[in-house]
Design a protein around this nucleic acid. Structure first.
Lengths: 344, 344
DNA sequence: TTGAAAGCGCTAACAG
DNA sequence: CTGTTAGCGCTTTCAA
């Protein structure tokens, strides 16, 4: 009993392929007798719908493309896992692409959507993964998409007058709160290790850093701003530089927990006590943040909801269901732990 | 200029669709004039091959299915990222499915392959993600597959007399080496937090634990074996239990670094000094292992190679290229760090 | 409620 | 080297 197609199955049952298809996909449109007979036989013969045929006919693949800057990043892992779970529940599969933050790769993954390998795309990046050309030219159909985590504009990226739906947190405010906490703890010289100049979330967090200083009428030394890339390595290496500063900061704000862990490592290596000698804060609240010593002060992002909601929004678009609210800013939360818990 | 198909493109150029297809996919089989003309026009009109049509014709989707027990696990993240990179380079995309270790989910993802959503499957699990039924029934085609990380049999899982290709490390030996290291350091009571009874890698690591004890003629107390599931939580919770043991162990071997970090947290909470009061070792060498305090002794697995090689092997199968060696055991490495570095 | 037949977009076999 | 043509497996009119 080799692989069997709808034709053979229909033949076996002495009915038309149309009936088989209907019995399987639109059960309400066939008699219950037919329904049962077909289902029974399908199971017996091990019939599986060939999705390629189905896709060609319906122009739907049941695949989603998700373009992520770094698949191995712990924060992203959480989002990925949540996207996958949400998609699976709705009968979709997810193609994950790692862009490394490179536009060229984003475009390559975007191409997959245009090539109909996927029905829509979730992208973590400042703009949709399509040519300028396509983005602007009128009367060209745009595939369903959702922007997440790396959202540039509070109005959403505009494509021909329409904002692209997004899901994110208020990075600016979150960083502001975190840095304000440091300032309230008496810190006046706070170094920051960023997530890159071209990364929207990092720019926003830097705005927050500046806002907090401004509000407290505290001067910012541009020498205290170090450009990292959210990785452990950058946290580790840049902290070395920070420690070489003649006017050493009393606190370090890393824009990701991964960087903060790298930073923590360097601080330990230099025998510095956290938070007494130097305070340290991260961002993301990855699950390890609470397990290192000292436990890391950070900002938690609703990882699970981010993944779930953007996937739901994308699927709603794909299936033509209306979306009530398509510019979603999820709540973050300041998590105070030992790494900044200095008693003055 | 709306979306354009091969037909319209051919029409615009006054040539046949066959020529367009050939110019794009088999450039060596058309004149260079034709090749250029078509490419030029394709670019100009923004033509993208509709992969569904192509797939229907060729029965190839250029997708790979990868079934992973936990997408958010740090060790897996590394493998995932490496799989994706390898696949992308070869022009494939990867559908990642999270099975949670549940057979039912494995089967659901396996179904996608049978439904031709993907050309082959990489699975982390004790057996292929297909019905018993399908696995045994003769004259049923089996899709290309590769087993990784959770490999039961050193001969490879047999499907109708043929071993399923695999890529893994020698978990038994690795755990043996690690536990032997502890024993050499004078530990006689070593608790272990496993990765689950039904998880091949965990069973193998437990074998290694036993072997090391046997070789050293050291008795094993079954009460020192705690069944975890590789997560931080299980490490944290089971360590609490370990500390309640009347005859407290002097070392803990966690079968994953994530568990070890959870364990470390509990030990810190109880003010125990690592390694002086109690030694701790993990497995995997996730990138955080070197960044916690004290740095964690562990076994490193060649994450990147695991992902790369199993993806390459799968693609080779898909494309009908011969595989020289399809039972691959990659080298591991004992990584000694502070968490077991006790001076006797 | 069911069947017949067209056709989704593409590539491969065959002919010229 | 290029064109003609068939058909991959399915769903969806349309008609009975």
């Amino acid at each position: 009993m080799p692989d069997i197609g709808i034709k053979e199955l229909a033949q076996q049952l002495g009915i038309s392929t149309a009936s088989v298809s209907r019995a399987l996909n639109k059960p309400e449109r066939v008699s219950s007798a037919m329904r049962e007979r077909v289902r029974q036989a399908a199971k017996e013969y091990g019939y599986r719908t060939n999705m390629i045929g189905s896709s060609l006919r319906t122009s739907r693949t049941k695949n989603i493309m998700a373009i992520i800057p770094d698949l191995s990043d712990t924060f992203n892992s959480g989002v990925i896992s949540s996207m996958e779970a949400t998609a699976a529940e709705a009968g979709y599969s997810v193609l994950f692409g790692d862009s490394q933050g490179l536009r060229e790769r984003e475009l390559r993954y975007g191409d997959l959507v245009q090539q109909k390998q996927a029905d829509g795309v979730i992208f973590f990046g400042p703009k949709p993964p399509f040519d300028e050309h396509i983005l602007t030219s009128e009367n060209r159909s745009m595939p369903p998409m959702v922007n997440s985590c790396e959202v540039t504009d509070p109005k959403g990226f505009m494509v021909r007058g329409n904002p692209v739906p997004y899901v994110t947190v208020d990075n600016t405010r979150a960083a502001d709160e975190l840095v304000s906490h440091l300032i309230e703890n008496g810190h006046k010289k706070i170094a920051v290790i960023t997530g890159g100049k071209n990364t929207p979330s990092a720019c926003q967090r830097l705005d927050g850093y500046r806002n907090a200083h401004n509000r407290a009428r505290l001067a910012i030394s541009e020498q205290h701003i170090f450009e990292g890339d959210y990785t452990i390595d950058s946290g580790e290496a840049l902290t070395e530089k920070i420690l070489k500063l003649e006017d050493r900061p009393t606190a370090i704000f890393c824009m990701s927990d991964e960087s903060a862990l790298g930073s923590m490592h360097t601080l330990h290596k230099h025998q510095l006590k956290i938070p007494d000698d130097i305070a340290l804060a991260g961002f993301d609240d990855i699950r390890f943040a609470n397990y290192v010593t000292p436990a890391l002060t950070t900002v938690s992002q609703p990882v699970f909801d981010i993944g779930r909601i953007c996937t739901e929004m994308l699927i709603a678009q794909i299936e033509g269901r209306p979306i009530e609210n398509n510019q979603i800013i999820l709540p973050h939360k300041l998590i105070l732990r030992e790494s900044t818990n200095r008693v003055l």
